[in-house]
């Protein structure tokens, strides 16, 4: 039992995965296929609900004009800034309140209260306070992102096994080492879960933020199209959201796999 070679335990099974990889794409492909069919047979009126091909052509036209790339880039910039700012503040607060009881007693109740406010209801306030420029949009995204990151960081840190911390203390680890080698890695799975959730909030908030007084971004593209009942562009924007959302999730998922390799080790054995 004790002398089994460790290599045998983690040999992965490779060949069988191929079919399972395709499975998640079956439904989207079927839906788009059915949609195209319904459009070309005239079942769906092309004016109210254009075909996938029409949407794709609209996308190509917008890309040729340069507006599509420009708007996506601008949205991505706003999203990234909001995520960085809100995420950092949320993380810092989460760590502070996770580690310091004084700070937690002082601020947690207030933060939890603020959290329950739907952050989009703050739009008028944000406009009055800091106007309608880039800072307003980035602030809204930051506020949206802050809370999931905060809550998960706090919860992650609070639920780290105190026995491990006790072991670290008695084994002579410094406070910094205890944080970086025990508390943070222990909280990381929960923090990454928060990040993944925050990425979703980031996009939804941004889209709404971009409908207020904006002349760029995907959210603007969508509302602008709505004003003129331009269904192709509206659907194109929805597809872009879906893709960006999926993309962010993919990044988060891979980050999880890389950062939490030790959890895979367990699954591989079971």
């Amino acid at each position: 039992m004790e002398n089994v070679s460790p290599v045998a335990a983690v040999t992965p099974k490779k060949k069988k995965m191929n079919w399972n990889r395709l499975l998640p794409w079956v439904l989207p492909v079927l839906i788009i296929g059915g949609w195209q069919l319904a459009s070309s047979t005239g079942f769906l009126a092309s004016k109210t609900f254009p075909s996938p091909v029409a949407v794709f052509q609209d996308g190509v036209a917008l890309a040729q004009a340069g507006t599509l790339q420009r708007n996506i880039a601008i949205s991505l910039y706003r999203a990234t800034m909001g995520l960085l700012i809100g995420g950092s503040i949320g993380f810092a607060l989460g760590v502070l309140n996770g580690v310091s009881k004084l700070s937690r007693n002082l601020t947690d109740t207030s933060i939890q209260m603020l959290r329950t406010i739907p952050h989009l209801s703050l739009i008028p306030l944000v406009i009055l306070a800091i106007g309608i420029g880039e800072p307003a949009k980035i602030s809204l995204v930051s506020i949206g992102v802050l809370f999931p990151v905060y809550i998960n960081t706090l919860h992650g840190i609070r639920s780290v096994d105190p026995n491990l911390v006790e072991m670290g203390t008695s084994y002579g680890l410094s406070k910094w080492e205890i944080f970086t080698k025990i508390i943070f890695p222990g909280a990381l799975p929960t923090i990454l879960m928060g990040l993944r959730y925050a990425l979703g909030v980031m996009w939804t908030t941004l889209i709404v933020a971009e409908t207020i007084a904006s002349d760029s971004g995907i959210g603007y593209m969508a509302t602008n199209a709505e004003d003129f009942m331009d269904m192709e562009t509206i659907i194109l924007c929805i597809v872009i959201y879906a893709l960006l959302g999926k993309l962010s999730d993919l990044i988060a998922k891979n980050l999880e796999i890389l950062a939490l390799g030790w959890r895979q080790a367990k699954e591989a054995q079971q």
Binding site: A73, T80, S216, I251, N254, L258
Partner: peptide, 25 residues
């Protein structure tokens, strides 16, 4: 492979975001 993929992805993300920044400002 995953590490390199993620890195390239994030790099592209940042590059596009910087392009967006220049488009605005």
């Amino acid at each position: 492979v995953r590490k390199i993929g993620l890195f390239v992805f994030l790099l592209a993300w940042v590059a596009v975001a910087i392009y967006g920044y220049h488009e605005i400002h």
